[in-house]
Design a protein around this nucleic acid. Sequence first.
DNA 1: AACACGTGGAC
DNA 2: TGTCCAAGTGT
Length: 293
Amino acid sequence: MRTSPISITEPVLAWYAAHARDLPWRAADATPWGVLVSEIMLQQTPVARVLPVWREWLARWPTPAALAAEPSGEAVRAWGRLGYPRRALRLHQAAVAITERHGGAVPGDHAALLALPGIGSYTAAAVASFAFGQRHAVLDTNVRRVLARVVTGVEYPPKAQTRAEVTLAESLLPAEPATAARWAVAAMELGALVCTARSPRCVDCPVLERCEWQARGRPAYDGPPRRGQSYAGTDRQCRGRLLAVLREAHGPVGKPALDVVWSDAVQRERALDGLIADGLIDPLDDGRYALPA
DNA sequence: AACACGTGGAC
DNA sequence: TGTCCAAGTGT
């Protein structure tokens, strides 16, 4: 452990001031709701794909109450092809909860955020930090990779987040809340732009001289193979096809319209049942199917 | 703790 | 072409 907080945070903050991307949810006029929507959309999803959808959402639903007033199916439809559509459903549920329990204002309290559907440890810390300027360890995949390299000296963090990582992230947090919040977003940005998973741009790194991975000669990852997620032919792909039919339809659709998008009937029924169980598709009394009301 | 959960761009 | 990966959460 070759770290004192100042030695890493200072250069990263300076680098961020000069190289941060100009993203709308970081603008001075961004609301906590805008930040929250961005954080949910960005889960496992690249910035470039989120940008246009985020703009549509914020223009259409500028407040949690505006979204809560619409059927959840509208959220699912407007989610488009971002993937993991249950996020849209949970964001709608969160909007309802915020409207009912918090008077329509996104809570700044970490515990209150954590209690909202679809918001876990990372997102609660991110919203509290980015939207409310609070001091929290914000540990996402970018930050975990940066710390693994710079501090621990290995190419990739462990598969599952460890207590040690949380402790390390907390130990690096600047004392001032406002500075801590800037460090949180700066460390993420460094991971997203410079300390990337593949082909890191070490020549552009503000902490190259303090990087333990660099000091060790950038040894390649040595550990159990990192999970490769197959997709073609899976229930996931089948669910995606099924839901796409509903998203693109104007109203309810009959069973045949769903049947034609997947040939394996057993798998198709299983996937449809799953979508219904998840609340992403409503089976109507007349035998047709629709996005949820 | 491991697994399910979408989608598409990059190499 | 297939693999890897992108600001995780819920079970």
